[in-house]
C-alpha cells in the first residue's frame, strides 16, 4: 500500500475559494453569485479582487439560478455559490429548465454537502444531490476529495463548456493531492494499484478509502483504490479495467445509495461485467445532528465500514 504524505488538513470549500480567486485573475469572463453565504463558500477573496464581477443575490436561490443562466447570454461564465441542499433540491426546476435544458454554461458550486456538515442536522445535510444532478441531461457532476483537488477542479471547469455541478464540503480533511496535479474532468485517478478488490471512492470518502487500504494491507488484502472525482461522465473504461482485474468492487461516498456513485457503477457493471459489488453509502435515511466523525461512524461511512464491505464482497467473489 502506497503512502500518501500530507502536511496539512484543509476544507474542500477553501479549495473552491482559492480556485475561484485564481479564476478572477486569469479569466475575465468568470463571474460569481452567492445567496448570502459568502463566508461559508470562501468567496471573499474573489469578491475583494473583482467586486464588479460579483452578484450578491440574497436568500433567493431560484432567482440566483435564473440570473446565472441569463449571465451566460453575453459570454459570462457564472459560478453560483450556496449550500449543496439549496444548490440542487431547492432549485431543481430552475436548473432543469433555465440551465440544463437550455444548455447554459453555469457552474453550480455547492458546499456543505453530506453528513459532514455536522450539527445543523438533516435539513441542511443533503444526501441526494449527486443523484438529482446526474439525472439531468447535459449535466456534469464532480465531487473532488481534498483542498488541492477542489481548487484544481474549480479552475478546470471554467474551461469546460456546459453546465457543471461541483460538490464540496465543510470539514477539514487531509490535503494529499499534489498541488500541481492537473484536473481532468471525467478521468478517474488510480491512487493505489492492487489485485484483490477495487475500491471506487469519491469526495471525502477517498481519504477514508486510503485509510481502509492500510487496514486491509495489514490483513494481507491488496486493494486497488481509485478516486472517481467525476461521477458524470463516468470513467467507464478505467472502472471496467480495474473491476475485470480484481473481480470484486466496493464503492464509497457521502451520499444516498440511491442515485450516487455506487448506483452509477452498479449500472455499468450490470451492463458490461456483472461482478459482486458492495456500496458504502447512506441507506435510505436522512441524517441528523452530531459531529462529522460521529455521523460518519453512525451512518457507516468510515474506513471500518469500507473494510467490512471489502471482506463481504471478497467472500462473494467467484
Amino acid at each position: 500500500m502506497k503512502d500518501f504524505p500530507y502536511t496539512e488538513s484543509k476544507d474542500t470549500r477553501s479549495g473552491f475559494g482559492a480556485g475561484l480567486q485564481e479564476l478572477g485573475r486569469t479569466n475575465p469572463n468568470v463571474v460569481a453569485l452567492c445567496a448570502d453565504l459568502i463566508g461559508s463558500l470562501k468567496m471573499d477573496a474573489f469578491i475583494k479582487d473583482n467586486p464588479e464581477r460579483f452578484f450578491q443575490v440574497g436568500i433567493a436561490e431560484a432567482n440566483m439560478m435564473g440570473l446565472a443562466a441569463g449571465l451566460t447570454i453575453g459570454g459570462k461564465i457564472p459560478f453560483t455559490g450556496t449550500f449543496a441542499n439549496f444548490s440542487t433540491g431547492r432549485v431543481y426546476d430552475q436548473i432543469r429548465q433555465s440551465i440544463a435544458y437550455s444548455g447554459k454554461n453555469v457552474k453550480i458550486c455547492a458546499s456543505h454537502a453530506g453528513l459532514t456538515l455536522g450539527e445543523d442536522g438533516a435539513t441542511h445535510q443533503i444526501l441526494e444531490d449527486i443523484g438529482l444532478m446526474k439525472m439531468l441531461p447535459h449535466m456534469t457532476v464532480i465531487n473532488p476529495c481534498d483542498y488541492n483537488q477542489t481548487k484544481a477542479a474549480t479552475i478546470a471547469i471554467a474551461d469546460y463548456e456546459g453546465p457543471v455541478y461541483l460538490r464540496f464540503g465543510r470539514p477539514v480533511v487531509p490535503n494529499f493531492t499534489p498541488a500541481d496535479q492537473k484536473f481532468e474532468v471525467g478521468k478517474g485517478i488510480v491512487l493505489n494499484e492492487g489485485a484483490d478488490v477495487s475500491i471506487f471512492a469519491t469526495g471525502h470518502l477517498v481519504w477514508k478509502a486510503i485509510l481502509a487500504g492500510k487496514l486491509l494491507a495489514e490483513k494481507g488484502i491488496d486493494a486497488e483504490i481509485i478516486n472517481i472525482h467525476t461521477i458524470k461522465p463516468l470513467d467507464a473504461q478505467l472502472i471496467l479495467e480495474s473491476a475485470r482485474k480484481t473481480r470484486c468492487v466496493v464503492t464509497a461516498e457521502e451520499h444516498q445509495m440511491n442515485g450516487g456513485l455506487g448506483d452509477s457503477i452498479a449500472q455499468l457493471l450490470a451492463r458490461e461485467e456483472p461482478l459482486p459489488l458492495e456500496m458504502v453509502a447512506v441507506n435510505d435515511s436522512f441524517g441528523e445532528s452530531g459531529t462529522p466523525d460521529q455521523l460518519m461512524e453512525k451512518y457507516g461511512l468510515n474506513e471500518q465500514a469500507i473494510v467490512a464491505a471489502v471482506e463481504k464482497v471478497m467472500a462473494r467473489r467467484k
Binding site: F55, A62, M65, G66, L71, G75, D93, Y101, S102
Partner: peptide
C-alpha cells in the same frame, strides 16, 4: 430562442441576468 421557458416564473430572473451581462460588457 435564448432560453427555454414553459415552467413559469423563471424568465424575469434570466432577463435580469442577461441585462447585467450587458452592463459588464
Amino acid at each position: 430562442i435564448r432560453v427555454a421557458s414553459g415552467s413559469l416564473g423563471q424568465g424575469l430572473s434570466v432577463a435580469v441576468g442577461a441585462a447585467q451581462a450587458k452592463k459588464l460588457n
